[in-house]
Design a protein around this nucleic acid. Structure first.
Length: 973
RNA sequence: GCCGAAGUGGCGGAAUUGGCAGACGCGCUGGAUUCAAAAUCCAGUUCUCGCAAGGGAGUGUGGGUUCGAUUCCCACCUUCGGCACCA
């Protein structure tokens, strides 16, 4: 920025007009000029390898990780540097405390946008990706983060892909031993005698069934119009995001990962982690563990019921249900006596067997309709319960009641056993269904008298109640409290061989394949028979032949079939021949999660070509001590990464059970505060809270049904009245005042490049921290950036002679001892800044440094040592200006490893302090007393105060609360 | 509906966790400097009554505990984020 240009009066995102410069300001002066000093110091750090990390830590280690970005074509947005600045401050602070800091950065570079770009332009995704990475790298370096750039990795690096594929093979080679609760090599899987007897083929199939990575039919979003399979986020309301074409769910053979086997450990290990309760809650909720019971209802021939029960009592509850039973899962086995019907999902394997001939037409029609419904239709739109009677009955094991079996899509095939016993009296959904189809409701839990339960209605089956109570209508169990009943009945069912306790999860196995080009190829070969058809045998690519690279393609257009684009690869790539056997490569690719699941490990040993990570280095650096990133990854990324880490832990690749010890989610940065009014076409204003959104999604005035348009208003057109903003011109019109998510379509995106150009990187960093607590959602404000830039200007002028020809130290900065008052400011600032930083509170230290600066600006003589302390603290936030000032203060080395300033309590304490004196809790006076005054003396001093004297005349002091160092409060009558 | 986070001046936010509400910054007002601006520096700025000294109210709403509540408890309202027929 040229000297003398206006920089603080920027109202929009562009600079206001340049002013003509007067003569006396036309000369070159050593003003604070970030455009000059920032690139200078960035170059210095790079050339001197200032932030290169040693292979092994010496002394205390600190691994601080950012969630690495997807290098999009748009470049960084201001949300990225928020977390990155926070971690950078932590790292710079830690280095100055003498810790060995690992602070790497890389790129999560596979993904859809690069492939979309390739389809459109024909440019290979790798080319575009490398361009984007170069741009991201430029932007990140421009912000002065202290990454060890020599460790940079991208998930698309061929050497990185190699180890991603290697991990896949590890997962493929692992089965989960439930008894030992850990993953073990597939070679150690015990093979049952009858399987071994059936031959090698049977053994292989048995092993494949137990691998953590396995093939399964799973539905994909196939869009015939686009000729491609879409990701879930590309499907909106059952239509493609691009073009709005219909999307069908079709089954496709896909790779899955058995994450559900690790559900228990993924949940229970959360406990030891230093994560916010909110994030833990979200993970727990996603895993969705529930406990209950599986119960078998007899559906075989009626005259064999007694035999069946006898055999069950003798043989116990079988692992897999036989054909003559319907197995259900319930969390409320205590309500078994209230089951008045059963429901199975339309996809349940017993649908055909249970459908009677009279019902077959109706059932077929219902199931066909259910199959064609999208997930959305089955959930959101399904306000009314639907279903059809199968014609069959099951026998309730506790009372031998004949219970009708229905087919309804409110029961999901993918959860529990895909079948339920319905207890309308004590389950909302069952109650709704029973109401619709006129099915009896029998209360079996007496909720007791309570103000929020209509007990009589519940007992009469008129309303549904899900609360605990005491059993009724439950035979010998009558009178048993709910919680006790649950345990008792599970025990009795187990004894009778009719049920067992069971655990279920909402978490599903992980769909691990994508029908895309731009992802890691699977290191998997499928053996072909003589006719060129896969025979089901799978050959993992030997480890020494990794990586499997992506083949060259002429173009990246979709095939027009659901198969992945790799089907277009040359036959050389697609059909390798090994030992005379012809194979076909797996043509699915891995999801973007794959690369981001383990990058934190590779940063520790990024160039190792022998192993994924050296065990000694892993031991020295893991776990990640601080992991900061957006909350959008709170569930999936963190869950998948934890899952892989646990598999690697079980297989001895790593020595830690959890990868991320402390996790912090940065809050979202919103656009600038906006004032929005609503106006009809005729120009009539409508208060924003009176408008409604109609069925078509249009905003209307519900009184007249006229559509209203949003009008953006300037701040001076509105004013605050009570709790809301109103139009200045018409106070009856309420205005919506809020900050919105940044988005291209709204036009409120802030580009860091422009902020750096206008204010400098240090100002951007400082502002992002000054906005508020890291974890809070906060609105952007350019005026705020200008404010912190102003502060940096003040710091500059505190130390640098603004009127000298060259950048020289101000004469006011001298080698002298600070005065007592100055020492108090210095040491209190160090104390507060240090304390707040250690708690990851980044906004308040800036305020303290501002106070420091305001104080010393008024001091005519400024001790050099004080200036150094400020510069050292500031360097964590604004490293460029700090390095420059450090040099001005006469230092020749970087300050990056200079010891962090220490405070001394003897300077932070006051000799005399002001104590408020209250009467009946209201402050009536203040007295100045010695800091170490005794309780009795403090009370005496308070009583002696003139004003207090006059106020308590004629009153009786009932009680005196005296808190030394805090206050005095007199309770009077 | 369920889970989570949060409500403090015109705005962003602070308050050593029960002890002076509004630090710091933005904005605004006034002053100094200037021929005049810009920049800079100084002072003021929760609302309200008052010329003033001083008084009253005040941390989403209503209640409670306490000498004392932004902070703890109960109920409710609003906003934001997430999940959503999970038996």
């Amino acid at each position: 920025m040229a000297v003398g240009e206006s920089r603080t009066k920027i109202t929009a995102y562009v600079q206001t007009a340049t002013l003509t410069l007067p003569k006396n300001h036309d000369r070159q002066m050593p003003r604070y000029n970030p455009a000059e000093i920032e690139p200078k110091w960035q170059q210095f750090w790079e050339e001197k390898r200032t932030f290169a990390t040693p292979e092994m830590p010496s002394g205390e280690k600190m691994y601080v990780l950012d969630m690495f970005p997807y290098p999009s074509g748009d470049g960084l947005h201001v949300g990225h540097p928020e977390g990155y600045t926070a971690t950078d401050i932590v790292c710079r602070y830690a280095r100055m405390q003498g810790k060995s800091v690992l602070h790497p950065m890389g790129f999560d570079a596979f993904g859809l946008p690069a492939e979309e770009h390739a389809i459109k332009t024909g440019t290979p995704p790798r080319v575009q990706t490398e361009k984007n990475i170069a741009n991201f790298t430029r932007q990140l370096k421009m912000l002065g983060f202290s990454y060890d750039w020599e460790r940079q990795i991208a998930t698309t690096d061929i050497e990185y892909v190699r180890w991603t594929q290697w991990i896949f093979l590890q997962v493929y080679d692992t089965w989960y031993d439930r008894e030992q609760q850990r993953g073990r090599p597939i070679a150690e899987l015990p093979i049952p005698a009858e399987i071994s007897a059936a031959g090698a083929e049977a053994v292989r199939e048995y092993q494949d069934e137990h691998r953590l990575a396995y093939l399964n039919e799973a539905p994909v979003n196939w869009c015939p119009a686009l000729g491609t399979v879409l990701a879930n986020e590309e499907v909106i309301d059952g239509k493609s995001e691009r073009g709005g074409h219909p999307v069908q769910r079709i089954p496709l053979k896909q790779w899955m990962m058995r994450i559900t086997d690790y559900a228990d450990r993924l949940e229970s290990d959360l406990e030891g982690l230093d994560w916010s309760e909110g994030i833990k809650a979200r993970q727990r909720n996603w895993i969705g563990r529930s406990t209950g019971a599986e119960v078998d209802f007899y559906i075989g021939a009626a005259d064999k019921l007694a035999d069946w029960k006898t055999s069950r009592a003798a043989g116990g509850f079988p692992r897999k249900p036989s054909d003559n039973v319907l197995r259900v899962y319930t969390t409320r086995p205590d309500t078994l006596f209230g089951a008045t019907y059963m429901v199975i999902a339309p996809e349940h394997p017993l649908v055909d067997a249970l459908t009677t001939s009279e019902q077959s037409a109706a059932v077929k029609a219902y199931c066909d309709k259910a199959a064609s419904k999208s997930d959305l239709e089955r959930t959101e739109l399904a306000k009314e319960k639907t279903g059809v009677f199968s014609g069959s009955y099951a026998i309730n094991p506790v009372n031998d009641e004949k219970t009708p079996i229905w087919i309804a899509d409110y029961v999901l095939i993918s959860y529990g056993t895909g079948a339920i016993m319905a207890v309308p009296a004590h389950d909302e959904r069952d109650f709704e269904f029973a109401q619709t189809f006129d099915i009896p409701v029998i209360a079996v839990v007496d909720p007791g008298e309570s103000k929020d339960v209509e007990r009589a209605e519940v007992l009469a089956g008129k309303v549904c109640s899900t609360v605990d109570g005491v059993a009724i209508n439950s035979g010998k169990y009558d009178g048993t409290p709910t919680s006790e009943f649950k345990g008792k009945i599970a025990e009795d069912l187990t004894t009778a061989g009719l049920g067992r306790t069971a655990v279920n999860y909402k978490l599903r196995d992980w769909l691990f394949s994508r029908q895309r080009f731009w992802g890691e190829p699977f290191p998997i070969l499928k053996e072909l028979d003589a006719d060129g058809v896969p025979n089901g045998k799978i050959l993992p690519v030997p480890v020494d032949q990794l990586p499997v690279n992506l083949p060259h393609l002429e173009d990246f257009k979709p095939l027009g079939r659901p198969e992945p684009p790799l089907e277009k690869a040359s036959h050389d790539w697609l059909y390798p021949i090994i030992d005379g056997v012809k194979y076909k490569r797996e043509t699915n690719t891995m999801p973007q999660w794959a690369g981001s699941c383990w990058y934190y490990l590779r940063f520790i040993d990024p160039t190792n070509d022998q192993v994924l990570i050296d065990r000694e280095k892993e031991k020295a650096w893991m776990p990640v001590d601080l992991y900061i990133g957006g909350a959008e990854h709170a569930v999936l990324h963190l869950l998948y990464a934890r899952f892989w880490h646990k598999v690697l832990f079980d297989r001895g690749v790593v020595g830690t059970a959890e990868p991320f010890q402390k996790l912090v989610n940065q809050g979202m940065i919103l656009g600038e505060l906006e004032y929005t009014g609503y106006q009809t076409a005729a120009g009539r204003w409508v208060s924003h809270n009176k408008t409604k959104t109609d069925a078509a999604g249009e905003r209307i005035d519900p009184k007249t049904s006229e559509p209203v348009a949003a009008v953006k208003l300037e701040a001076d057109a509105v004013e605050k009245q009570g709790d809301s903003f109103v139009l200045k011109a018409d106070a009856s019109v309420k205005i919506d005042a809020r900050a919105m998510k940044m988005s291209k379509s709204r036009g409120n995106v802030v580009n860091p490049d422009i902020v750096v150009k206008e204010y400098g990187a240090d100002s951007l960093r400082l502002y992002e921290m000054f906005m508020g607590p890291l974890e809070a959602t906060k609105p952007w404000s350019m005026a705020g950036v200008s404010g912190v830039r102003n502060f940096l200007d003040r710091v500059w002028r505190l130390i640098v002679d603004d009127f000298a020809e060259t950048t020289t130290l101000l004469a006011a900065v001298q080698e002298i001892e600070p005065t007592a008052e100055q020492n108090k400011v210095i040491h209190r600032t160090i104390e507060a800044v240090t304390r707040d930083l250690s708690r990851l509170e980044f906004n308040t230290p800036i305020a303290r440094m501002m106070e420091f600066t305001n104080f010393f600006t008024k001091e005519e003589v400024r001790p050099k040592s004080a200036m150094k302390s400020l510069v050292l603290m500031l360097s964590a936030y604004a490293p460029h200006i700090a390095e420059e000032l450090w040099a001005v203060l006469g230092e020749s080395e970087t300050l990056a490893y200079h010891p962090w300033p220490q405070f001394d309590e003897k300077f932070t304490k006051d000799d005399e302090i002001e104590i408020p004196v209250q009467i009946l809790g209201k402050i009536r006076s203040k007295i100045v007393v010695a800091a170490d005054i005794s309780k009795a003396d403090l009370e005496k001093a308070a009583l002696a105060d003139e004003r207090i004297q006059t106020l308590i005349v004629g009153k009786q002091i009932v009680k005196a609360i005296v808190v030394p160092g805090r206050l005095v409060n007199f309770v009077v009558k």
